[in-house]
């Protein structure tokens, strides 16, 4: 009996590790490639044993004219700010949708926006930001990422707020509390896990946003994804450097997810986490 259960556990681990490896094939390859010299990268058959080198990282972090640290900080700032803005706009809206039933459901419209290929509207959006003097600023990227993320955020928050018994805020209302008070004193604390979940999800999606940032950022506001794509040069892809940049961009979110995964899992359960 004991032996059998050990065997099963080992088998389970083997299966899980194999699955994880298959899903992460491109990332594993990026990590390996990032430690290879250019000659090892372009050798056939592919090399698995090689003398690791930090040249690629050196190029990414310290090469002239390539400001990786700025791109990294931009990503951190843009992702965090977007999460906050999504909450600021999303919580009241979600409360409104959850508690006040009406025939018009703005949610469908918001999610419908996700269907439109973003680059079609990119020129009008660009014109708008040019007029506002916001081209190549983090503010403009925060705004556009909010547009992308807020529908899903509201969608999830509505689920969490519906979990809160409406008798609680009805009671508060009878005591004469304003909507604002109800929101900050009752809804906010009670839906904290949901809020954390939305923050995590928004952060991750903003961190990996590429297409829109590609057009709207030039130098100052470039996030890490666009920064990595700078290694796709006019003629060739600089495999080593782009791999190093991808690796460096993945590590922080990996650590982030490691610590916040409980909230992430809760994102979709509308607060109904039961044992």
């Amino acid at each position: 009996m004991r032996r059998r259960s050990i065997k099963r556990t080992v088998l389970l681990y083997v299966v899980i590790i194999a699955i994880v490896a298959v899903f992460n094939l491109p990332i594993i390859n990026a990590v390996l490639t990032s430690f290879k010299s250019n000659i090892d990268i372009s050798s056939s058959p592919p090399k698995w044993i090689f003398r690791p080198t930090l040249t690629q990282y050196n190029n990414v972090l310290f090469a002239y004219g390539y400001n990786f640290r700025l791109y990294f900080m931009n990503s951190v700032i843009i992702s965090s700010m977007t999460s906050l803005v999504v909450l600021a706009l999303g919580i009241p809206a979600a409360y409104g949708i959850a508690r006040y039933r009406s025939r018009v459901n703005p949610l469908g419209l918001l999610l419908g926006l996700r269907l439109v290929p973003i680059f079609v509207f990119i020129i009008p959006v660009f014109i708008l930001f040019t007029r506002m003097g916001l081209v190549d600023t983090r503010t403009s990227l925060v705004m556009m990422n909010t547009v992308i993320s807020v529908p899903l955020g509201i969608f999830l928050l509505v689920g969490f707020i519906q979990e809160i018994p409406s008798s609680i805020d009805e009671a508060a209302r009878i005591d004469g509390a304003s909507v604002f008070t109800i929101l900050t004193r009752i809804i906010l604390p009670l839906s904290l896990p949901g809020i954390a979940a939305v923050v995590c999800l928004t952060f991750i999606f903003t961190w990996s946003e590429y297409l829109m940032s590609l057009i709207l950022s030039f130098t100052r506001a470039v996030p890490i994804t666009v920064g990595a794509s700078f290694f796709i040069t006019a003629w060739e892809v600089r495999w080593g450097e782009i791999s190093a940049a991808i690796t460096l961009s993945v590590v922080p979110v990996f650590i982030f997810v490691f610590f916040v995964q409980d909230y992430l899992v809760r994102a979709f359960t509308g607060g109904a986490l039961k044992g």
Partner: peptide, 17 residues
Amino acid sequence: SLLLLPMMVSPALIGVM
């Protein structure tokens, strides 16, 4: 965390890899 990793890299960069 490892399993969730692929969705944190933008599809364009996944395509490149």
